[in-house]
Amino acid sequence: MTVPTIQTAGLTKGYGDICALKPLDLQVAEGEWLSVMGHSGSGKSTLMNLVGGLDRPSGGSLSVGGQDLSALSEDGLARFRREFVGIIFQQHHLVPYLSAVENVMLSQYFHSVPDEAEARLALERVGLGHRLKNRPGELSGGEQQRVCIARAIINSPKLLLGDEPTGNLDHKSTVMVLELLKELRAEDRFTVVLVTHNEEVAAWGDRTIYLDDGVLVREERLRS
């Protein structure tokens, strides 16, 4: 049995008086695809940000990829993010003045050295080989999200996080994005954690957890 990619014990997060995440014990195995569901304000994004090293826990332990995140410095967390995690947001969050390929290269630049050929290849993998030079404003929502996926996987992360990555997409684009993620995971063997409001999207995962008011209330295994 290998070490789980994500392991939390009594993990909490509070914002002032608000307790966004009540003590949470969670394990996500290497290569697993976990879906996170729950109504608005239930703490899904909070959990995501903690696991992605974008925010710090208020209490409990949090280990991702064998690293104790609460022990890392600010720059240590940045390093963890660029080396270990790929993140896809609901809003596309691309740099508006850079072309698709440059947006992907930006991630390489922070990670190590930009490599245009490799960035091109990543965009080809997400089916955007023909839109390399376009700026985000010239791409459709689904295309932008695929650029984000290419950017998220370019540095071969061990963990891919998506906070409602298909929230703004129509059904067809959603299926396309999920299909793409599934393929990429099959090839690159990374762990996936996807936040979603949509049962159908959640069903693409191996397991779904349900949060309610910061508490893990239900868990459903779909496949192993």
Partner: peptide, 15 residues
Amino acid sequence: SEIALMKAMGADRFQ
């Protein structure tokens, strides 16, 4: 938002 994005992608303070 652009800077926040760079940070989320793992840019440290120096970068």
